[in-house]
Write a protein that binds this DNA or RNA. Sequence first.
DNA 1: CTGAATCCATTACGATACTG
DNA 2: CAGTATCGTAATGGATTCAG
Lengths: 129, 129
Amino acid sequence: MLNCHPPSERRHHSLGASRHILDRVGDKWSLSVIETLCHGPLRFNELKKQVEGISQRMLTLTLRHLERDGLVTRTMFATIPPRVDYALTPLGFKLLKPVSELVEWVRENSAEIEAAQRTFDQQTVTPLP
Amino acid sequence: MLNCHPPSERRHHSLGASRHILDRVGDKWSLSVIETLCHGPLRFNELKKQVEGISQRMLTLTLRHLERDGLVTRTMFATIPPRVDYALTPLGFKLLKPVSELVEWVRENSAEIEAAQRTFDQQTVTPLP
DNA sequence: CTGAATCCATTACGATACTG
DNA sequence: CAGTATCGTAATGGATTCAG
């Protein structure tokens, strides 16, 4: 929970340790990859097809980060051609709940957010004469 | 909610419209600023003192983004010296709930996450002879 | 006091080519 | 098939200086 308490009762840095996961939430591809994997394991190229727009490089990097944080497992099969399966860990599945609720919240409030953005953008527009 | 359904039932881009807010969640300062403002309005320099480590530039930029998204209001007083109050909007307050639950989730699972990171990091370490 | 402007370092990302 | 390597570009953030 965020430290919504007066400064006297506040602990040092309320976030900080959570940064790594928040970075995953904020980066361009992690949530899409997690979402795609929630139906079951997928191979690298299947993932690449289903996460539209992602490059090979970014898929590799994103999967490495998710694997490092314990959200995704990587399973290699010593076949020819090689085959690698990626799957959500139980931890990865559990993350879906709070993340989904956040995304859901944004959806429910997107009209208000976009209205605010339009208002803000119009204020500072200085049309040329 | 994230599209955890088979591809046949899946809507085009599950995220996409939510990117803007997810970017706020993911960036370095937005959540700290929101957290600091949840006790009540603050002036620019009070915010700068309480959000430790933030530079003047990043505080300005962060506040502009939050204001644009309708999460924060900016109130100027035409006094000398000038005074500007920043406060959470009702929308900003409401965002605290899903965000807090996400941060809470990370806290509850930080041990497991950090253990995964240590394991991952040790795998690829190749100590020099 | 509030904040805009500038400069710089680091990182994120994308496109392409190459490899076991 | 599943990557790695390399390159170039854009975005992000920090430090410092200037201004109303």
